[in-house]
């Protein structure tokens, strides 16, 4: 990675681990994650805020990492799809996506998982309509959404039983 004269050192926390990296001031958080930190879970779909494939959590809020500057995460907490499973144990949402076949090509999946997890953290018992409204910022070209919605509702049910 070439270091340009606009490079800055960024100290942040990603999935609970302190991370320090060098970034260009013009990089987005998505570019920094994928190209500087080799965390390629967040995907680039549109690069303009419309598709949600790049969704991550920034200080506990769902954001599009393509619409965040890497420099903005100095001192912040970032959570990405890489931190979703607990070791070898999948998160109930990940498990439900597999069981309900809520993905085909999979490029939208990390974004849907991050977004769905944020939904269930705020509203553990969403209706189908609430799931669809919440996920409106995530686009999927393959599944037609029904299976994704079903998977989210299933995971919500299972997570509530486990509580």
């Amino acid at each position: 990675m070439t270091t340009t004269d606009d490079a800055i050192l960024i100290r942040t926390t990603i999935n609970g681990d302190p991370v320090t990296f060098l970034s260009s001031q013009r990089d987005s958080l998505l570019e920094a994650l994928r190209e500087r930190l080799n965390m390629t879970g967040a995907k680039e779909g549109c690069n303009n805020g419309n598709c949600g494939a790049c969704s991550v959590m920034l200080d506990g809020r769902l954001v599009n990492s393509c619409l965040v500057l890497a420099a903005e995460v100095e001192g912040a907490h970032v959570d990405t799809i890489e931190g979703m499973a607990d070791g070898e144990t999948l998160h109930p949402l990940q498990q439900a996506f597999l069981e309900e076949a809520a993905l085909q090509c999979g490029i939208c999946t990390p974004g849907f998982l991050m977004s769905s997890r944020a939904l269930l953290a705020e509203n553990p018992t969403p209706t189908e309509e609430e799931v669809r409204f919440w996920l409106a910022g995530n686009l999927c070209r393959c599944t037609g959404y029904d299976k994704i919605v079903r998977a989210v509702l299933k995971a919500a049910g299972e997570m509530n039983e486990a509580r």
Binding site: G49, G52, L62, N64, L67, S115, G137, N138
Partner: peptide, 9 residues
């Protein structure tokens, strides 16, 4: 305005 990820910012 936008979706949830836009509204976070």
């Amino acid at each position: 305005i936008g979706g949830k990820a836009v509204q976070g910012r």
